[in-house]
C-alpha cells in the first residue's frame, strides 16, 4: 500500500499530530518551569519572611498554677447546663480533669492531648472534640486566647439510656 491510503491505514495522521503535540507540550512545560525557576527560588529564599505574616508570634502560657484556680467564683448550681454523656466519656472527662488539675487552668490542648496519650487513654482527640463541641471545655478569652478551661456552667450527667 502506498500514498495517502498507507498513511491512513497506519494511523499516520493521528500519530503525527499526537506526537508533535506531546513533543511541544513536553518542551513547553519544561520551558515554563525553567522560566519561572528563578522566581520560585527567590520565593523559597524569602520563605521565612513570607510565612511570618501567617504565623502568630509565639506566646507564653499566661500563667500556670499547680492547683485548680480558686479565684473564679463558682456559678450557682441552678444555672448550670446539663450535658448528658455516656459512662465511658464521663470517665474520660474525669481523666482529663485529673490531667488539667496538674497542668493548671487555662491549659493548652496540645499538652492535654500529649499527657492523655501518655496515660494510655484511647482516642483522646475524639473525646476532646466531643467536649469542645458540647461546650464542656471552652476557649479562654483576651490574652489567654488559644488556651482552654473547663466550662463552669456545665454539669456532666450520665445519659438516661444508661441509667
Amino acid at each position: 500500500m502506498y500514498g495517502l491510503k498507507a498513511i491512513s491505514a497506519a494511523n499516520g495522521w493521528t500519530i503525527t499530530f499526537t506526537g508533535l503535540a506531546i513533543v511541544f507540550t513536553g518542551l513547553v512545560v519544561l520551558a515554563a518551569i525553567m522560566a519561572n525557576m528563578e522566581r520560585f527560588l527567590a520565593l523559597w529564599d524569602r520563605r521565612g519572611e513570607l510565612l511570618a505574616g501567617f504565623k502568630h508570634p509565639p506566646r507564653k502560657q499566661p500563667f500556670l498554677v499547680q492547683e485548680p484556680r480558686t479565684d473564679r467564683p463558682e456559678a450557682p448550681t441552678t444555672d448550670k447546663t446539663r450535658v448528658h454523656l455516656p459512662l465511658d466519656q464521663i470517665e474520660v472527662a474525669d481523666h482529663f480533669h485529673l490531667i488539667t488539675n496538674r497542668l493548671g487552668e487555662p491549659f493548652s490542648l496540645a499538652q492535654l492531648l500529649e499527657k492523655a496519650s501518655k496515660h494510655g487513654l484511647s482516642s483522646p482527640h475524639r473525646h476532646l472534640d466531643t467536649f469542645l463541641k458540647l461546650g464542656i471545655i471552652v476557649e479562654d478569652s483576651g490574652d489567654r486566647q488559644g488556651f482552654y478551661t473547663w466550662a463552669n456552667d456545665v454539669e456532666i450527667v450520665r445519659s438516661s439510656a444508661e441509667e
Binding site: T16, G19, L20, V23, F24, G26, L27, V28, L30, A35
Partner: peptide, 16 residues
C-alpha cells in the same frame, strides 16, 4: 527557555 521551542519545532522533520 523560549529558545527551547525551536528545538521542539525542528522535530516536525521526524513526523513528516
Amino acid at each position: 527557555p523560549r529558545l527551547m521551542l525551536l528545538g521542539a519545532a525542528a522535530q516536525v522533520g521526524i513526523f513528516l
